[in-house]
Design a protein around this nucleic acid. Sequence first.
RNA 1: GGCGAGGUAGCUCAGUUGGUGAGAGCGCAGGAUUCAUAACCCUGAGGUCGGGGGUUCAAUUCCCCCUCUCGCUACCA
Length: 694
Amino acid sequence: MKKFKRYTITSALPYANGPLHIGHIAGAYLPADTYVRFLRLRGEDVVYVCGSDEHGVAITLGAKKEGLTPKAFVDKYHNIMKKAFEDFGISFDIYSRTSNEIHYKTAQEFFTKINDQNLFTIDSSDQYYDEEEKIFLADRYIIGTCPNCANPNAYGDQCEKCGTSLSPKQLINPRSTVSGKTPVLRPTKHWYFPLDKFEGWLKEWLVEGHKDDWKTNVYGQCKSWIDQGLQPRSITRDLDWGIPVPLPEAKGKVLYVWFDAPIGYISATKELKGKDWEKYWKDPETRLIHFIGKDNIVFHCIIFPSMLKANGEFILPDNVPANEFLNLEGEKLSTSRNHAVWLHEYLQEFPGRRDELRYVLTSISPETKDADFTWSDYQKKVNSELVAILGNFVNRVMVLTWKYFDGKVPSEKEIAGTTEKRKKILAYYNQAHTDLDKTVKEMINCLQTFKFREAQFQMMNLARIGNKFLADAEPWKLAKEDMEAVAAILNYALTVVGNIAVACEPFLPDAAKSIKKQLNASGLDKKWNELWTKEQLVHTVPEGHQLNAAELLYKNIEDEDIARQVSRLKKTESKPMEATNLKAIKPEVVFDDFSKLDIRIGKVVAAEKMEKSDKLLKLTINAGVDTRTILSGIAKHYSAEEMVGKQVAFIANLAPRKMMGIESQGMILSAEDSDGKLRLIRPDEIVNPGSTVS
RNA sequence: GGCGAGGUAGCUCAGUUGGUGAGAGCGCAGGAUUCAUAACCCUGAGGUCGGGGGUUCAAUUCCCCCUCUCGCUACCA
C-alpha cells in the first residue's frame, strides 16, 4: 500500500433542510469519525472536514414554506445539525457551511480557474420568464397553443395532440403553469461542465486505476455510468440564492448547488488551516478520502473528481468508501412519514449513551448491503455485548484489584512455573498474549481497509480474550494459596484493560475516557498509542500505580426503554403530517377553469401491465359514452388483476398522449400520500359508467 | 425494461483464486463457575450457501436462465 504523508477526510455535506437521523450517521459520519480517530491515534497528520450544504432551490422552497428567508432557514438547520454532531461526538476538525464568505470566494475562484481554460461551454438562449414568480420557466412549465394543430394546451417541448416537437417560443399565447400569467422572453445563458470530455480520463483513472481498491458497490455503479456515456452538465442557475457566477455577463446567475457544494470541503480546510491549507488538497502525498452514502456515489466518484481534474491543481480522491442505506424496523427511513430515529431526539432520550448508538450502528454498518436497525437489536447488542463482555471485563478486573491489592497495580514480576497450577497459568497467559496480538493486528488491518464492523468486532475480542483469561486463570481461587500468581494475573489483566482503553477509542470514545479515568491514567499514557503503531499490546500500567474507584461503563437497556421507543415510532407515524411537509396551495382559478375539465367515472374492464415499464398499467375503461384506453403510472401500487372491475375517476377530455408507443386517452385520478403512495379516487357507491364528477 | 449491488444457520453478517466434515457474534439448549452488571467460561443443536439448468473428476464458489430485495435510469398526463 502506498504510504501517505497526510490525510484529508471528508464526510458528505448534509443538506441544511432538516435534522439528522441515524441513517445519515451510519452512512457517512460514524465510519469517517472512527477512521479519523484511528488515524489520529497513529499520529497521522489528518484534517477531517464537513459542513452544511446551504444552497439550491430546495432551500428557497423550504424557507418559503416556513415563512423564513433562505438565510434564516439555513441558519436554523445549520445550528441544529452542528449541535447534534457535537453532542454526539463526531470529531470534525471543522464543521463549516457553504454560505460562508470564504466559501463564496473559493467556489468562485474554482469556477474562474476552469473558465480561464475555456473548458466550460455556454449555451445561450431566450427563455420564458415568469414575472410574477420571478423565475425562469423550464419548457414543461409553459403551455400554449400549438402552431401546428391549434391545440390550446400544448407543452413547451411537445404538443401531445399532434406529437410535434416544439420549443416554447413556437407556442401561441404561452402561459406559465406556475402562476398562470403570460411569461416574457428573456435572454439567458448557462455554463456547462463538459463531463463528456473527461470520459477517456475517467476510464483510465477510475475504471482501470481503481478496479481493485474500491468497494464493489462503488466501482460497479461508476463503471455503469461511464459506460453509458457522459453528458455535459449545466452548472449555473437563474436564482437569487446561491453563489454568484463571477463573470460580468452572468449577472443574476448563481452556481448550481452541486457545483459549489463539494468545493465546500476545500473552503472548510482553508478556514481551518489558513495559509497551510494547500498541502491538504494539492500535495500528491496527501490521501483524500470521501465518506458518503450510496446516493452520492456518482457525484463524488465521477463529477467532483472531473471538476478537480479540470481545475488542474488538486489531488483526487484515493478512495470513496460509500455505504449502502440503513432501514429502520424493516422499513425505509422516511422523513415525511417521520419513520426515523432522529439524532437529537436519541441524545435526549438516552442521555450519556452515545457509545451505545455508535456501537450498534457500527456493528450493523451497511458496508456491503442495506442494513436494518431495530430497537430490540439495539437492546440485545448493548446488553449482551457492551455490558456483558466489555463493561463486565473492565469491572471485574477493577473489582479484583481493589479487593486483593487495595486498588494498587500489583507486581509486574512474571511468575516461574514452579507448580502445576503455575505452569497452567503461564500457558493461559501465553495463549492470551498470542491471541491479543493477533487481534490487534487484525483490528488495525480492518480499519485500514474500511471494514469498521469487523474492526469493532476485533476490538471486542480483546475483552472476550480477557474474560477467558480470567476464567481460565481463576485468580479468586489462587488468592488463598499464591498471591504472587494473583498479582501476575491481575497485572496482566490490567494491562489488557489499558490496551482496551486505547483500542476502543475510535469506536467508543466515552468508554475510553471512563477506563482511563478508572485507571487514573492521566500522565502515564504517553506510550499507550504504540498499540496502534507497533500493532501489538503495550505495557500500560506501572507497578504500584494507584487506581481510581471502579465505575460501570454501561448499564443494561431495560425493556421499557425499548417499548417506549417502538411505540413512539408507531405513534408519530400515524399522526397527520405537519403542514410544512405538504405542498403549497396552487394559485387561485375561477370556476370556468374548473368546468373545462370533464371528470367522469368509468369501470375498468381490462387491465394489463405494460411491458418494459415498471410503473405503467394499461387500463381499458368503460366510460359509458365510449370505451377507451388509459395508461396510468400506478403499477407499483395496484396490480393489473385488482384493478379489473374497479370504478375509477378519470379526466375524459385531456389531450391524448403517447407513452411507450400507446396512446393514453385520459388520466386516472388518485391521491398521492407524502411518501409517494398512490390511492385511487373512487365513488362512494357504484354509479353508472360515464357519470360526471363536479 | 436497461444497468449496478445483494439474496449463506432463528437474527446480524463473514467466507470460498472450485476440492479435506461451510464459519463468527447474538439468540437457544445443556454443563461448569462465583471475581463480576443473573454477568463470564465450556459444550451442543441449527444451514440441500434464493430456485432451475450447464461446464467439471468435483460448484455454495465459474457460465446461462428465473426469482426476490435495494439503488441508478426510462416510462408516471
